[in-house]
């Protein structure tokens, strides 16, 4: 079933078409959300809301852009809203809770079953450093970078999702990589990686 057929049937309220849409685009949506929120459970929760939004607003969808572009846009917006909400909540979160959460994370890492615990630990640390560096990027750079890296989107595709010119996307990605390199170098100098 093509995207066009799925949309047409979805507009008529077909549940089978909704199932096709979810199963066909689940990976795309979860990956996009994960690239921005860096937490598997949160990414799946946001992805569920993305599909619900698509189901509810399918009547407003016009064939101006591709279905995937629309899905990317909703996923990015929902993930950014989630990050903003989390930031607000962190203001009210006590320091003790923060420390507790960190300790729990470390315990999880230490108790995860693997053949190479040292290697696993190192990878988790690297992932945490990388996530922190990505999270510290300005919003637009972060979106462009995660679409490029997690979804392998071309500059042209990113420009369609972000509704900006290809040259702007090029410049965003260039600055994102420069900033990331700077942060990773600082971390390397401090011997944290």
């Amino acid at each position: 079933m093509s995207d066009q057929e799925i949309i047409e049937q979805l507009k008529q309220g077909s549940e089978a078409a909704f199932r096709k849409l979810v199963e066909g685009h689940q990976k795309l949506v979860v990956n996009t959300c994960f690239g921005l929120v860096h937490n598997r459970e949160d990414a799946e929760d946001i992805a569920q809301d993305v599909f619900i939004e698509v189901y509810r607003s399918i009547q407003q969808f016009r064939a101006d852009s591709k279905l995937s572009t629309w899905l990317y846009r909703i996923s990015v917006n929902r993930s950014l809203n989630h990050i903003r909400d989390n930031k607000k909540h962190k203001w009210f979160q006590s320091f003790e809770k923060d420390v507790e959460a960190r300790n729990r994370q470390i315990l999880q890492v230490e108790s995860s079953p693997t053949d190479h615990p040292g290697f696993e630990m190192e990878n988790k640390q690297r992932a945490a450093i990388l996530q922190e560096a990505i999270n510290s990027l300005p919003e637009n750079q972060k979106v462009a970078f995660s679409l490029n890296k997690y979804e392998d989107l071309s500059y042209q595709e990113i420009s369609e999702v972000m509704e900006m010119s290809v040259s702007s996307v090029e410049s965003l990605l260039f600055r994102a990589k420069k900033n990331l390199q700077k942060k990773l170098y600082k971390c390397y100098k401090k011997k944290c990686m």
């Binding site: 199932r19 979810v22 199963e23 979860v30 799946e44 569920q48």
Partner: peptide, 9 residues
């Protein structure tokens, strides 16, 4: 992919 994803949605 999570096999229960559609059911959850």
């Amino acid at each position: 992919v999570n096999p229960y994803f559609y059911t959850r949605v």
